[in-house]
Design a protein around this nucleic acid. Structure first.
Lengths: 132, 132
DNA sequence: TCGATGATTGACGTTTACGTAAACGTAACA
DNA sequence: TGTTACGTTTACGTAAACGTCAATCATCGA
């Protein structure tokens, strides 16, 4: 695993356009180094990009993602900050638990209609066999 | 539980605007009855709306949601249709499993930074006690 | 009968998250 | 020494998902 990447390498690895990566930077979600004019992404930048894309898959907006990423890097020093921070973590957890419940529900429904399909399929195949 | 609803009742129950509900209808996601000009939503329409909002929470687009809802109502009659349908179910399941994995990862990371926060918090509080 | 209340249909506006094109820089390679 | 391949900035365009009027209609209580 290399320790630095250019924009095209990352765009290919994650199947996104360079435009998208630059856009994330313009929104403050990435801060790559520069080699002259060109962007140079560290391993940490690459992890950050992974986090962004994971957030996107979960349907979070870029500003929500920015907020979450800031939590990863924050180093609150005072008690009040820490307690505020723990509250935000708590809220995020509730939010994610809700999504997980939504997923479980949807998966259960998928299983149900899958069952029905399989039943119908067996009936149809049996009917064909009976014809022979 | 009433068996029919007007648009304002639904908008209040689900904390969305009437505009949003009408928009979903214009996109083919809802087909309420009419009483004269006015829309009348059945219990089934209400469930449908719930499904839409669940899909939104999971970050699906309205067209994806329309696709999923159509699966709930489809009654494929031929073997080829059924097998195609089972494939779509399979794909959806993969998609949802991916999201669930993303959620588990994120929750695990939240737990980790929560731990760190709690540790710091305890240290700070201990330091204050030692001062006394 | 009149005004408030709530619903409807346009129609244009807005935000988010990029797409796309133009114009330019630069390093390598034939 | 072109030209090809990537990279950059700037800027306008766009699709999705609504928000926000405005004009109109229906009803209902005072």
């Amino acid at each position: 695993m290399p320790s630095s990447f250019n924009i095209t390498e990352l765009s290919k690895e994650f199947c996104i356009t360079t435009r998208t990566i630059r856009f994330y930077e313009s929104e403050g979600l990435l801060q790559p180094e520069r080699n002259g004019r060109n962007r140079v992404y560290s391993a940490r930048d690459r992890v950050q990009l992974k986090l962004i894309l994971r957030g996107k898959r979960l349907g979070f907006s870029l500003s929500e993602i920015a907020d979450m990423i800031s939590m990863y890097h924050a180093e609150p020093g005072e008690i009040a900050q820490l307690e505020y921070f723990l509250n935000r973590i708590h809220d995020r957890r509730l939010h994610l638990n809700q999504k997980r419940d939504d997923i479980e529900l949807t998966l259960a429904e998928l299983t149900s209609i899958e069952q029905q399909c399989n039943n119908r399929l067996e009936n149809l195949k049996r009917a064909i066999n009976d014809e022979e």
